[in-house]
């Protein structure tokens, strides 16, 4: 059964899109990630114009983050003040990102930059994840205890000025790195169509030393607002959010996520992370190969709309 995507301007098989959404939803539920960094490359592999894939990916992340954010809000495991400061940076970053996005599109380098960014991020994150989980597996095999992270350790981040008190996180921290982190993630949201949790969460834990208990809730808080904002601005400037595509992905995604969560609880953490690392690396590798092999046609065409149809 085919369905016509009015914004991407092509007909697709609805079951492939449903399958994609469900699979990514399943993985995102299993690993507790938003899934934007998998959805966008998959859509590109399925010949959805990258412009549409990125904008629609941001929209999909809104849906996949809502239920998580709600439960963290109920449990009170989020730092509102910290989230708001992150959000200030995030909205500014998303605005800058949209500007960069439109400019890259005008000069015809958007597809390349999107692919390059994905190769770099997926490659780095995938390798780190794989290496970390392999180390953890080896440790578990030798029955060594997990190395404990000593709190109270200070790094350069904690010597910056403009300090603010974040009661919930029990932190006295400069606003500069928080806003900067939000800004960087905001740019990634609009250029890559990701929520950015896979970068934000480690950065908050290791760089800003924010307590793990509030990290996920706070990052989800920021992600929802930034992806929602990006969706609206993408729709208003590039007309590139495909509501039909997004709806199919979201519905399949949230259902898949429910089952992913259940499976995820039964599997062991290190094995899960090793699997996710491998998957992320594979997607990055596929994109890298597409950049390097000689294309079938050196010429491409764009007419008013998105890409060569």
């Amino acid at each position: 059964m085919t369905v016509y995507l009015p914004i991407a301007e092509l007909s697709v098989n609805i079951f492939i899109i449903l399958g994609m959404g469900a699979a990514v939803g399943f993985l995102s539920g299993m690993f507790g990630v938003g899934g934007g960094f998998l959805i966008t490359p998959l859509l590109i592999f399925y010949n959805i114009p990258p412009v549409v894939a990125v904008a629609t990916g941001a929209n999909q992340v809104v849906a996949s983050s809502v239920s998580g954010a709600i439960s963290h809000f109920r449990r009170g495991t989020l730092d509102m003040k910290l989230g708001t400061v992150l959000l200030v940076g995030g909205l500014a970053g998303a605005s800058a990102g949209i500007w960069i996005f439109s400019w890259l599109r005008k000069v015809g380098q958007l597809d390349l930059i999107i692919s390059l960014l994905y190769v770099v991020f997926l490659g780095t994150i995938g390798s780190l994840m794989l290496a970390e989980s392999l180390r953890a597996m080896r440790r578990a095999a030798r029955n060594e205890p997990m190395p404990l992270r000593r709190p109270g350790q200070h790094n350069w981040v904690h010597r910056l000025p403009l300090k603010m008190r974040f009661k919930k996180s029990k932190l006295y921290l400069s606003a500069i790195p928080v806003v900067a982190l939000g800004f960087g993630i905001g740019i990634l949201t609009s250029v890559m169509g990701v929520g950015g949790g896979f970068i934000m969460v480690p950065a908050m834990i290791y760089l800003l030393r924010i307590p793990t208990s509030v990290v996920v809730g706070t990052s989800l808080f920021q992600i929802i607002f930034v992806t929602a904002y990006t969706t609206i601005v993408q729709a208003a400037t590039n007309y590139s959010v495909d509501i039909v595509l997004a709806t199919i992905l979201m519905v399949a995604g949230v259902i898949g996520a429910q089952y992913g969560v259940r499976v995820g609880q039964k599997l062991r953490g290190e094995q899960l992370r090793a699997l996710l690392g491998l998957l992320v690396l594979a997607v990055g590798l596929r994109l890298a190969v597409d950049l390097v092999i000689t294309p079938a046609d050196l010429y491409s065409l764009s007419v008013g709309g998105f890409a060569s149809r």
Binding site: V66, I232, A235, V241
Partner: peptide
Amino acid sequence: ITDAAHQQPLAYGLVCVLVALVTGWGA
């Protein structure tokens, strides 16, 4: 949908976000 996306892009974007919120919350 095409008309809405091009003529009322802001409202269209808001609807997209609303659909996402309802889907996520509904699930």
